[in-house]
């Protein structure tokens, strides 16, 4: 699919990972329908680190859920790696999530009964990946995320930042086409948060992993290569980092947010 008028195109001409066209999502029964997404068009290219920002109720999480195949859109098409996910059956979606996508959640969502290593290796447990291959993959990811020493610890024995790194490692173990992160720094203190974001940016650059992150924190989104702003279920505007410093990008984000109004206060 080539660029259409309304489609937001990144400057690079890399391969498209995600292509959303006219995505709509409504909730509620007849008579009391609330449209949360009102026709979103979005294209994410390989190697991008996209931030989705917007005030509470702007539809950030709904968009993420729809794009991440956890929820179904009411209308529109979503292609991930050229595959139309809106036409897939539930079981196909599950397999697709397992093989193509990675997830990082605000609450980490680690399994309490599993060690760090077991948690990380969980997504490959039903795949065809050989044990040695999985082990090598685990070692390299654990090294990047600096959690090698924690492999045999249980989630209750490690800090929030470490848990989120574990969660990130779990998202990356499958070498997914696209990683979705939902407020990954939401439960972290500022030091752990920036440390995690630095690592994510690094993984994005060095490993070429495509990441889409929902956040309401301008500081977090300043690590992205592009930030898309949502307002009332529509794409309001977008910013590219380009060659700007992170600080300058952060300032730009704040400016857009000021115009947008909303939750700039609770971000700090």
């Amino acid at each position: 699919m080539t660029t259409e008028n309304k489609t937001i195109t990144p400057k690079t001409s890399k391969q498209t990972v995600l292509q959303a066209h006219n995505v709509r999502k409504s909730f509620g029964a007849r008579g009391n329908v609330q449209q949360v997404l009102k026709g979103i068009d979005l294209r994410v290219a390989e190697g991008e680190f996209v931030g989705i920002m917007g005030a509470s109720g702007a539809g950030k999480t709904t968009l993420l859920n729809v794009l991440a195949t956890i929820d179904r859109s009411t209308e529109g098409t979503i292609l991930i790696d050229g595959v139309d996910i809106s036409k897939m059956k539930d079981s196909e979606l599950s397999a697709f999530r397992r093989n193509q996508l990675g997830f990082i959640f605000q609450d980490y969502n680690l399994l309490d009964t599993l060690t760090v290593k077991e948690n990380i290796l969980l997504p490959v447990s039903l795949g065809k990946m050989k044990k040695q291959e999985a082990e090598a993959q685990f070692q390299s990811i654990a090294k990047i995320l600096d959690i090698e020493a924690l492999a045999d610890k249980y989630p209750h024995e490690i800090s929030g930042g470490q848990k989120q790194r574990t969660s990130a490692a779990r998202a990356l173990i499958n070498q997914p086409s696209l990683v979705f992160a939902d407020e990954p720094t939401g439960a972290l203190d500022s030091k752990s948060a920036s440390s995690l974001l630095r690592t994510m940016a690094e993984v994005n650059k060095q490993q070429g992993v495509t990441i889409m992150m929902v956040t309401h924190d301008p500081l977090a989104s300043s690590y992205c290569s592009r930030v898309v702003f949502l307002k009332d279920g529509n794409v309001y505007s977008e910013l590219y980092k380009g060659d700007k410093t992170r600080q300058a990008f952060f300032q730009e984000i704040l400016n857009v947010q000021a115009v947008l109004g909303g939750d700039s206060v609770d971000a700090l």
Binding site: S91, L101, L110, P123, L126, R170
Partner: peptide
Amino acid sequence: SYATLRQLGFT
């Protein structure tokens, strides 16, 4: 845990 696993793509 089940919610997480379903989200990670386990049926």
